[in-house]
Simulated scan of single mutants.
Amino acid sequence: MRDPRLLAKPPVCRLGCLVLVRNPRGDVLLVDPDYMDGLILPGGAAQPNEPPNLAAARHLHAETGLNLRLADVLAVDFTPADRYLERLNLVFDGGTVTEHAAARLTVPPRHRSGLFGARFVPAHELPDVMAPAQAARAAEALANRAVPLLLHGQRTTCDEGRTPPR
């Protein structure tokens, strides 16, 4: 049963879908956006009704050329509204890519991507190249064990294209 009061004014909250990717040395993949100071984890906002693992994979591919299947979450970070709307950020485990894959990162031109580039950064250097909240988010994700993403109560199968039926 649908309660119209619940749908009358849905909450406004963006869902950020980020990915923590490491190389064989344990360095963390970061992107350098032109719209903010410091480096950040690759990723971006989910579209309405887009499964967050697919949104994270879509943004990762668009920003770096990496095509990874994502299913596990390493951290959840709520950010209250400031100059942006409030948002909930999910950090997905992108695992460790090979040296070959790491060397083949493909960042689209800045005028299309809004990125200056992407690079792997040693974990101990994250506080030096990221804003404090961004570095703390990445450090927590590095320290945590992955938990599965559930889509409507079901464990996701990485490349699930839609939410399971109700």
Rank of each mutant, 00 (worst) to 15 (best):
P109S: 02
G95C: 06
G117T: 03
G94F: 01
L85M: 13
N89F: 02
P52H: 07
A46C: 03
D32P: 02
G43N: 03
A133I: 09
V12S: 15
L18Q: 08
P48A: 08
R104G: 13
E160M: 15
L115M: 07
P132L: 08
P24W: 02
R162T: 12
L66K: 01
R104P: 07
A62M: 07
L41F: 06
A133M: 07
A102E: 03
Q154Y: 12
L54W: 07
D77G: 05
V121L: 00
A118R: 05
A118H: 04
A45E: 15
P24S: 03
M1W: 12
N53V: 09
T106N: 15
R162S: 10
F78Q: 04
L85R: 15
H100C: 09
S113K: 05
R145L: 13
E63F: 01
T163C: 14
V147P: 07
P164R: 03
R162M: 10
M1K: 14
A56T: 08
E160K: 10
A102D: 05
S113C: 08
C13L: 15
R112P: 03
L30C: 02
Y35K: 08
P11K: 10
A62F: 04
L105P: 04
Q47T: 12
G16W: 07
L105Q: 10
G43W: 05
P42W: 01
C158V: 15
D3C: 10
D128N: 09
R166K: 11
T163N: 14
P33G: 05
H100F: 08
A139S: 14
